[in-house]
Every structure is written in structure tokens, then in C-alpha cells.
């Protein structure tokens, strides 16, 4: 069941993404409404992070396109903010929590410019929003996992974007952080922002999100939470490995065949 919306903020059309020629996401077609809290749900290896990275143009795609606010991503970078997985960086970097949050302002500052007073204030405000103002000068390797996640979130907030993509923000954080984050996400939704969250816990997904994308190597469902989280669709997402699909992917990799034939233009 894939529900499409009018005037979507995110439109993904026939998106196929491959690693080393092996497709990990097949032909995803989806649209997301504005002002929604969207959960991207699926088992391990379903391609949840891959979908978000492909939308952010961090991965080359084998086919398809993505449009955000009906524009190409390059034109609307300033309106989009990305929270990578916490493990994607080395936290033993010589920087303080404040330094990292200030990075959220770099995009609007422009090249070579130094952060000004307004940037520093915005960064401090973002730290306050996640309850980390007293840790501003703490070296980032000395923060707990939950605190590091909050710093990443604050960095995204400092960007003042309209749409947020978050890759597993709840992974490995304490319950207090999880509650603080979800509270923040709800406030953002009330301000009309769209938040897309990669999430792995089905139980809390029902509670947290009002739009769910079910993924397992292909799009299983996309729609309002109460219509999508059905027994049948969940079984389709979690039950039964797509053995043939995996094997075909392996073949593509082994025989070095591109997953799409070259288009004759």
C-alpha cells in the first residue's frame, strides 16, 4: 500500500541504489506530506539509511530521481538538514560540543567567512533546545552516547531548515535522551517542519510517527501510521527473506553488470 500525496515535500521516483553494483534498494517510489513526522521502518539491512543517504545525494543512484520542494536537492540544500548516524564520525576529534553545533551554521555563512555573533547565538540556542548548554565547552569525546546524539541534533537545529532527515537518532541513547528528542520532534512538527527519522523499533514507532514508510529492499508501504501498520504489511516487511532478490543482486555484482542498461539519449 503506497499512498501518494498532493504537493509533496519529498518525492522519490523509481529510485534504485546499488553498492558495488549490487542493488540494495529497488525502484522506490514515494511521496511525503509537509509537516509530518515520518518514520522509516524495516529490518536490518533493509536499506533504511541507504534511502536517506540517497535522498540527501550522498550516494550515487543507479536510477530514478529525488525532488524536494519540487526542486533538485542542490537548489534547496539550505532548507534541508541531515543528522548522520552517531557512529559515522570519530568523536575523538579536537573539538567542543559548541564547535560541532556551530558547524550547523557553516552552510549559511558561506566559504571563508568566520562565524559571527549571530551564528554563535544560534548555536548556543540550539544547544539549549536539546538541554546541553552546560556542556558547550566539553570536549566531544567526553560526552556520553546520548549527549553526542543531542549535539548532532543541535547542529541540525542550528541550521534552521524546513525538512530534517535523521539517521537512527534513537540508536544507543538513554531513555531520557529519547524522550527529549521525541519532544523536540513534536515541537518541530508543530512549527510546520517535516522530519524523516530512520527508526528500528516498531513498538515506539506507532506512538512517535504519523506517517510510516515500511522498507525491505523495496518499498513495502508508505502512508499514515494507522493505515500502514497492519499485520499483513508488517509480515510483508519483516517476514520471509527475499531470497531470489538477494541472489539476483549478488549475480549483478559478480558478473559486473550494471543494474540499468545505458539510456540512449
Amino acid at each position: 500500500m503506497i499512498i501518494h500525496v498532493e504537493n509533496p515535500v519529498v518525492e522519490v521516483h523509481d529510485l534504485t541504489v546499488s553498492y558495488d553494483r549490487k542493488p540494495v534498494l529497488w525502484g522506490v517510489d514515494l511521496t511525503l506530506p509537509a509537516g509530518a513526522l515520518v518514520g522509516v521502518i524495516g529490518p536490518n539491512g533493509a536499506g533504511k539509511s541507504t534511502l536517506v543517504k540517497a535522498i540527501m545525494d550522498l550516494l550515487p543512484t543507479s536510477s530514478g530521481y529525488v525532488r524536494i520542494f519540487d526542486k533538485e536537492i542542490k537548489e534547496v540544500r539550505k532548507k534541508i538538514s541531515y543528522v548522520p548516524q552517531r557512529e559515522s564520525v570519530d568523536w575523538d576529534f579536537p573539538a567542543s560540543a559548541f564547535d560541532v553545533v556551530l558547524m550547523g551554521r557553516y552552510g549559511s555563512m558561506g566559504l571563508f567567512k568566520r562565524p559571527g555573533k549571530a551564528d554563535k547565538e544560534a548555536a548556543m540556542l540550539a544547544l539549549e533546545k536539546v538541554g546541553m548548554q552546560s556542556f558547550a565547552n566539553r570536549q566531544i569525546s567526553q560526552l556520553s552516547g546520548g549527549q553526542q546524539q543531542r549535539v548532532f541534533l543541535a547542529r541540525a537545529l542550528a541550521q534552521n531548515a524546513d525538512i530534517y532527515f535523521m539517521d537512527e537518532p534513537f540508536a544507543g541513547v538513554d531513555i531520557a535522551t529519547e524522550m527529549a528528542i521525541i519532544e523536540l520532534l513534536r515541537i518541530m512538527r508543530e512549527q510546520g517542519k517535516t522530519v524523516v527519522v530512520v527508526h528500528h523499533d516498531l513498538q515506539s514507532a506507532v506512538e512517535y510517527f504519523d506517517w510510516i514508510v515500511l522498507l525491505n529492499m523495496r518499498l513495502v508501504a508508505s502512508g499514515p501510521t494507522n493505515q500502514v501498520l497492519t499485520q499483513e504489511l508488517l509480515e510483508k516487511t519483516y517476514g520471509g527473506k527475499l531470497t531470489v532478490l538477494t541472489k539476483v543482486g549478488d549475480l549483478l555484482r559478480k558478473q559486473e553488470i550494471p543494474s540499468r542498461e545505458k539510456q540512449v539519449k
Partner: peptide, 22 residues
Amino acid sequence: IVFYKELMLLCFDQAYARTIGF
């Protein structure tokens, strides 16, 4: 010195640098 901020972000979090349009 001129590219301090850009080089720092590149070293810390390249993917993020890309998403903010660097």
C-alpha cells in the same frame, strides 16, 4: 587559516559537509 572552517568540517564529518552544500 583562510579555509580553516572548511578543512575542519571536511576532516570531522565529510558527509555532513556535503549536505550543507560545501
